[in-house]
């Protein structure tokens, strides 16, 4: 056994959309331990979003195996012997229901799972992602793009997931906002002990946020590099300016574009 239990374990995973000769993902083997902040980077069309959809269960494998394990049940999950793996998903767009208020949008995952909603907890969640209680009654159309993204993040946390799956969630927002959202996500990851898998084509983001960065190239090449990062105790502002950041960025660039 490895030192930490794997939440996801992919073995020779293959995904194709109808044509086995043109796979989107080919021979992907990846082990993601609990508590890791893993970022998958790669050029457009390398299958990184598909990989995330596989992990979320939205896309089934055409070949190979995937094991998902939530590990021993936590007290919060009800204390059963085998806990189910709950994953929160944040899409590239906020994907909110425009006819529902912020609070009603947060209730959706509970409604669909036929679970009781505790509005006080949901309001607390709203504050955790940087929105205020006053926003609870607003519709998405009354919120700015950044606030919509925050609401979308809060919704991913409603079912108290062990895993957070992020599909380029900051791609559509401006740089300034992106940095703030990045800090929010990393803070939530640390505070909640989440396992987070982020898909992005922003190398700086990958370098800044992750414990581990995987470089994915279009099939048949697959995973071509796998970096582990030491995270020293720095404030977000210090970390952004730290020399290690730039060194790693160079390494990452070299891995993506070998000379």
């Amino acid at each position: 056994m490895a030192e930490k239990a794997a939440i996801y374990s992919l073995q020779d995973a293959v995904v194709h959309f109808g044509d086995p000769l043109r796979p989107v993902l080919q021979q992907i083997s990846l082990r993601i331990p609990r508590g890791q902040f893993l970022t998958v980077v790669g050029p457009s069309g390398c299958g990184k979003s598909t990989l995330l959809r596989v992990l979320a269960g939205l896309q089934s494998l055409s070949g190979g195996q995937m094991e998902r394990s939530a590990g021993p049940a936590s007290a919060a999950a009800g204390g059963g012997s085998t806990a189910e793996l709950r994953a929160g998903f944040v899409f590239q767009q906020p994907a909110l229901l425009p006819w529902r208020t912020a609070l009603q949008n947060l209730r959706l995952p509970l409604e669909l799972g036929a679970a009781k909603s505790d509005d006080e907890r949901l309001l607390g969640l709203l504050e955790q992602v940087g929105l205020s209680r006053a926003d609870a009654g607003k519709r998405p159309g009354q919120l700015s793009g950044g606030m919509q993204m925050r609401l979308s993040l809060a919704r991913a946390l409603v079912r108290d997931p062990q895993v957070l799956l992020l599909d380029e969630p900051f791609a559509a927002v401006d740089d300034f906002l992106r940095m703030k959202l990045q800090d929010s996500v990393r803070a939530l990851h640390d505070a909640r002990g989440l396992t987070t898998i982020l898909v992005t084509h922003n190398l700086q983001e990958a370098a800044y946020l992750s414990d581990r960065v995987v470089v994915l190239q279009p099939a048949p090449r697959g995973i071509t590099a796998d970096f582990s990062l030491e995270r020293s105790c720095l404030s977000p502002a210090e970390r952004r300016r730290a020399p290690e950041q730039f060194q790693f960025l160079q390494q990452l660039t070299a891995a993506l574009f070998p000379s």
Partner: peptide, 18 residues
Amino acid sequence: RRFGMSLGGRISGPQSGG
């Protein structure tokens, strides 16, 4: 008023960029 949408099928109010 009731659904935060408009007849074009659009969401009323400012939209997120992208």
